[in-house]
Write a protein that binds this DNA or RNA. Structure first.
Lengths: 216, 216
DNA sequence: AACCTCACATACCAACTGGTATGCTTTATA
DNA sequence: TATAAAGCATACCAGTTGGTATGTGAGGTT
């Protein structure tokens, strides 16, 4: 079950400048893959080490235990990818809602079938660990809040320049956009159907169009 | 981690007529709870049996292995609860969108804090098992498709009686509604904040209002 | 009464888990 | 150059896992 090939094209592509050369980072990314595939609890330290060629001595030299390794994966790998993929691109646009729509479209198009099959590492970890470990929950929650904040800013900017209809509450839009994006990914994953994911994303885009003023 | 009290009020309340008296069902529901708490892979058969007072002989008399037990939990417990909570209530309304909105509101109000902390058993199981076991994925997908179909019917009915704006595609609305509902639950779970869940739900309701014709 | 099947209980097992104690190099420091 | 510390490797451990082989009592059948 846990064996796999690493040939999948990830939408959160690895960046070239990431320091893969040091042992700690090797373990961190191997752990990220294992966790992404099998979940945290089912992730095997022996598997992680087998993929890196390292041993248990190396692991426990850099991390005190499995739980702290999981925390580090969240803070140093997952947070970074979410930020680069969904938060950073939102900055400073004249028409923030349009650039949000564009971001959703681009994200959707970047998914391979394998990406969709594996699901979103953020939401799957949240589903698994949030109910049973506060350390996981708080660390994952930080990422979600950063994400929300970024969208809130964008919506408020659009609001202030009169691009939105009256009833819109920025925080509500933010929470809903994030929720729907992850829900769309989940729908694509469970159906293993990329078109279903895109279809769902178009629904979200329709919503974002409906809250915009037509006469502007 | 796996110990817990069973005092939580579930929104998918157990119905009185469910046959708890026979051994198979006892195991089934104990397994459901364990899986809902810890996920399937981390669910311990020994824990399940300890909660029922039964032994391994009983379990392996009724189920060939752990995986088949998981399948049975999906088909006989989870499917039933989703159907009763979200699918059956959608039938035959004069104003289907309004009754869908009402269903969303009622569901939201029925959540206790503990319900939200635990998350949705359907989506958490999907996140965990869909990528690594086809048997789980297909069985969970059946539930989602039934859910989608029911909403598609409702939207088409509203469409045919001219209650919706032109751009609406029923299947798109269906996929998005389900996706957003689960995303809202996820947002509530990760923040451990009921108001965030409700807030997200109101966003979805706003969407459902926006796709309705105002002059009707 | 003999027999058989069902419905479990008991005892046990190999495999794997996270974690630890110790040893060995290499590098930095003094 | 002596010494300390960092950065790993090796070997090992108790606990837990899913799974199995066997035993046993009740109920029905002939």
């Amino acid at each position: 079950m846990s064996d796999h090939d690493d040939s999948g094209v990830y939408w959160w592509r690895l960046l070239d400048d990431e320091p893969f050369h040091n042992t700690r980072t090797k373990i961190l990314f191997a752990a990220y893959k294992e966790i992404h595939l099998n979940g945290f609890q089912a992730a095997s330290l022996n598997n992680i080490l087998a993929h890196t060629g390292l041993t248990k001595g190396a692991l426990y030299h850099h991390f005190p235990n499995k739980t702290e390794l999981g925390y580090a994966v969240i803070e140093e790998v997952i947070a970074d990818r979410i930020y680069r993929s969904f938060i950073a691109p939102l900055n400073d646009s004249g028409r923030p809602i349009d650039s949000l729509i564009e971001l959703i479209q681009q994200s959707g198009n970047a998914f391979s079938l394998r990406d969709v099959q594996l699901g979103c590492p953020l939401s799957s970890l949240a589903q698994e660990m949030a109910p049973i470990d506060e350390g996981f929950r708080t660390r994952l929650n930080v990422i979600y809040e950063l994400w929300h904040e970024a969208i809130v800013k964008a919506v408020m900017k659009a609001q202030q320049s009169g691009q939105l209809i009256d009833q819109v509450q920025p925080e509500q839009v933010a929470v809903m956009v994030v929720a729907t994006m992850e829900g769309c990914l989940s729908a694509g994953m469970i159906s293993q159907d990329l078109s279903k994911l895109m279809f769902c994303g178009e629904g979200l885009i329709q919503y974002l169009n409906l809250i915009q003023n037509k006469n502007n």
